[in-house]
Simulated assay, not measured.
Amino acid sequence: MNTKERIAARLTEALSPQALDVVDESHLHKGHAGARPGGETHYRIRITAAAFAGLSRLEMHRRINALLADELSGGVHALAIEAKAA
């Protein structure tokens, strides 16, 4: 399972999102800080989940970052998050 699949699996398991899109944008960051040959360093997440109801934008981001702590400490350099409640 690659990083993109692990991210999608963790978010799906924990949040049961109505919509989820995980995009590997590593190719856009070649030569930048944190970029590695082979990619899997820069991701964008678009997620809509009922689990976010009543949460602020900051709280949604904190929840996602906590769920993905292993990936963020193990090779993912950047994570852009677009989250909203269903």
Rank of each mutant, 00 (worst) to 15 (best):
K30V: 12
A49I: 03
H77P: 04
P37A: 15
R36C: 10
S56R: 05
E82I: 12
R62D: 06
R62T: 04
A9C: 08
A9K: 14
K30M: 13
E71A: 04
Y43Q: 02
G74E: 02
H61V: 01
G75L: 07
F52P: 00
P37Q: 14
N65W: 01
S26A: 09
E71G: 02
V76K: 02
M1I: 08
A80E: 08
G34W: 05
E5R: 08
E25Q: 14
E40Q: 15
L28D: 11
L28V: 10
H77V: 03
L28Y: 11
K30E: 14
L55G: 08
P37V: 12
P37L: 12
N2A: 08
T3M: 15
R36V: 13
R46S: 13
E40N: 14
A86K: 14
L58G: 07
E5F: 06
R62Q: 14
S56P: 05
E13G: 09
G31W: 05
E59I: 12
M1H: 07
A69V: 14
D21V: 15
V23M: 11
H42P: 00
R36H: 14
A50C: 11
A8K: 07
G34C: 07
A49S: 15
R44M: 09
A33R: 14
G54K: 11
I47W: 00
A85L: 11
N2D: 09
F52C: 05
F52S: 02
A86R: 09
P17W: 00
K30W: 10
R6I: 08
P17F: 00
L55A: 12
A49C: 13
I64R: 01
R57S: 14
S26L: 07
A35L: 07
T3Y: 03
A35E: 10
E59P: 06
M60E: 08
M60L: 09
I7H: 00
E40S: 15
I81C: 01
R46P: 05
T48S: 13
V22Q: 01
K84W: 08
A50N: 15
I7F: 02
A50I: 11
A49Y: 01
E71T: 02
A51Q: 14
G38K: 06
I7V: 07
M60S: 09
E25H: 06
G39A: 08
G54Q: 13
G38T: 08
T48H: 10
H42E: 03
R6T: 09
L67E: 01
L58P: 05
E71N: 05
H61L: 03
G75D: 09
V76P: 02
G31C: 13
E13A: 15
P37H: 08
M1P: 10
A49N: 04
G39M: 10
S26D: 07
A33G: 09
M60Q: 15
I45W: 00
I7T: 02
E25G: 03
G74K: 01
A8V: 06
L67F: 01
A78F: 04
K84G: 11
I47T: 01
L11S: 01
K84F: 05
S56V: 06
H77Y: 06
A78S: 15
G74R: 00
R10Q: 13
L79N: 01
V23G: 04
A19H: 15
D70A: 12
T12N: 03
